[in-house]
Amino acid sequence: MMLMSTRHVLLGLLVSGPSHGYDLKRRHDERFPQARPLAYGQVYTTLQRLVRDGLAEVDGTDADGGPERTMYRSTTEGSHELARWAGEIAPPAPFVTNEIFAKVVVSILSGGDPEAYLKAQRAAHMKRMRELTAVKTAKGADLSTLLSADYALNHLDADLRWMTTTAARLTTLTAEVDTA
């Protein structure tokens, strides 16, 4: 779902049958509703790279009454690559870039108000969590929507927990950062 796996996700969508760029974008956004929507440009660059690497090939063109579109389909090599990727475990977050923590430390160093920052950040997180929960509990929400909202909710919740415990330890942290 993240940027780095866009090629595999598109490849996955192609496996179910030949498709053109616009259709792939639509299906991607439908399937992963809480992910960042794909830009057309990104879809076409990715498709071209897949063709270059021999994982996909052009299947011809399709007019269908409208403008002419290039159809793509997956190659055997593409299917193999997809199977390999899908079975490979994702590295459990080896390097977490923690922007919130960086801001807290910088705030202490520069004599700012880390507590106020954490409070505001918490409120923003909660607001986003409420929005996601509203999406999740909307009548008729399908399981894909629910699961992707859940994924985001759990990550926000993890941030939130971290912020709560950090806020409770700010005094000690300030002392540590200041003496260092």
Partner: peptide, 11 residues
């Protein structure tokens, strides 16, 4: 639990 609180309109 923040995830439970997120079901509310307000906190």
């Amino acid at each position: 639990d923040a995830q439970v609180a997120a079901y509310a309109d307000r906190e």
